[in-house]
Simulated assay, not measured.
Amino acid sequence: MAEFETVRRTHAGVRTAQIDEGLRAHMNKVYGTMSVGMLITALAAWAIAGLSVTSDPASGMMIREGQYLTSLGSTIYASPLKWLIMFAPLIFVFGMSAGINRMSAATAQTVFYAFAAVMGISISSIFLVFTGESIVTVFLVTAIAFASLSLYGYTTKRDLSAMGTFLMMGLIGLIVASIINIFLASSALAFAVSAIGVLVFAGLTAYDTQNIKNTYIQMAASGNQEWLGKAAIMGALSLYLDFINMFMMLLSLFGNRE
């Protein structure tokens, strides 16, 4: 993919200042949408985890001393429904990617926020497994790493497109290994998936940021605001997935378990 300056020069009919201003607005929308999605995920995860735990021993399964699962918690974490909840975010991503051309920008944004809520439910068990302090610490570390990597992807003159194929192969390998390990429950494989996953999603953060920027520059001359709006939503989805997966991998590696 062409570098920023090369691509920008190809659009002779669009002034550089206009492209720069539009690009800033586009990236602000991408990061803003992603941030709202992250907030929805955090609130959904915290709320579901809180409703899933009680101190009443008569409620059912004990998860640690003095804490038991409520009926909601048993349904989410200890019933066959847990498989649907586990894979629901993946289904959302595939569905949204396949149907984005048939959606309006407003619909795509609504679907993204619904996906963020489902993701929150899916990962809510972290509040039952890890200490609150370690969750906050790992989140802050992830935020710093993500911001640095995304800034690099945005500002670098180096073409990162060559990384795309390699990173996607790594991502597919991680998904397959993670699904296999659901049944194997191997701690060694889980460690390897988390360690490699951090590197893969770190690379994807820089790659996706540059790809979002270059895609906007290539399409800026078209003036298709509906398309650009949907591109911002899909860009937010890409960066959201990079962040949330990097966070989960780091939490698995360094989080303190209850």
Rank of each mutant, 00 (worst) to 15 (best):
G32A: 02
T33V: 09
T33E: 09
T33K: 07
T33S: 14
T33C: 06
M34Q: 13
M34G: 06
S35K: 07
S35E: 07
G37E: 11
G37L: 11
M38K: 10
M38G: 15
M38A: 15
L39Q: 13
L39A: 15
L39G: 15
L39T: 10
I40L: 08
T41E: 14
T41A: 15
T41K: 11
A42N: 06
A42T: 03
L43G: 02
A44M: 10
A45F: 02
W46C: 12
W46S: 13
A47V: 06
A47Y: 05
I48A: 14
A49M: 10
A49L: 09
G50V: 01
G50I: 00
L51G: 09
L51A: 14
L51R: 03
L51F: 07
L51T: 00
S52L: 11
S52F: 02
S52M: 03
V53A: 14
V53R: 07
T54W: 10
T54L: 13
T54K: 09
S55E: 14
S55H: 14
S55W: 03
S55T: 09
A58L: 15
A58N: 15
A58W: 10
S59I: 03
G60D: 00
G60L: 02
G60Q: 00
G60W: 01
M61W: 05
M61H: 11
M61S: 13
